[in-house]
């Protein structure tokens, strides 16, 4: 293995910090869904979930430190999934 592929070592502190952030976000999302937002409840909960998974992907899964290839692939797969979901919904929304 050549040295240019040497990994960036993430400090314990960063991980703990992210963990605290994630737990705060979880509690916040529970809090926010208790407020009466009607149909926006789900949207709010999902936005929090999206932010959380972004942190997991970028820090825990090292996308931030790795080669751009991984980021691009992950982005592509998520977009593809949402595109498929969107196209499926074209049918159901208009039926």
């Amino acid at each position: 293995m050549s040295s240019e592929e040497k990994h960036h070592i993430v400090s314990y502190k960063t991980y703990l910090f992210i963990l605290l952030g994630l737990i705060t976000l979880t509690l916040l999302s529970v809090g926010i869904t208790n407020i009466e937002l009607r149909e926006y409840t789900v949207a709010a909960a999902l936005i929090f979930a999206a932010i959380k998974s972004y942190f997991v992907l970028y820090y825990f899964m090292h996308l931030k430190y790795d080669k751009p290839l991984y980021r691009r692939m992950a982005m592509f797969v998520f977009l593809l999934f949402f595109a498929v979901l969107f196209v499926t919904f074209i049918d159901y929304v208009n039926r």
Partner: peptide
């Protein structure tokens, strides 16, 4: 029996 919009798409 899909919706019309989906058919066109």
């Amino acid at each position: 029996g899909m919706s019309g919009t989906a058919l066109y798409t």
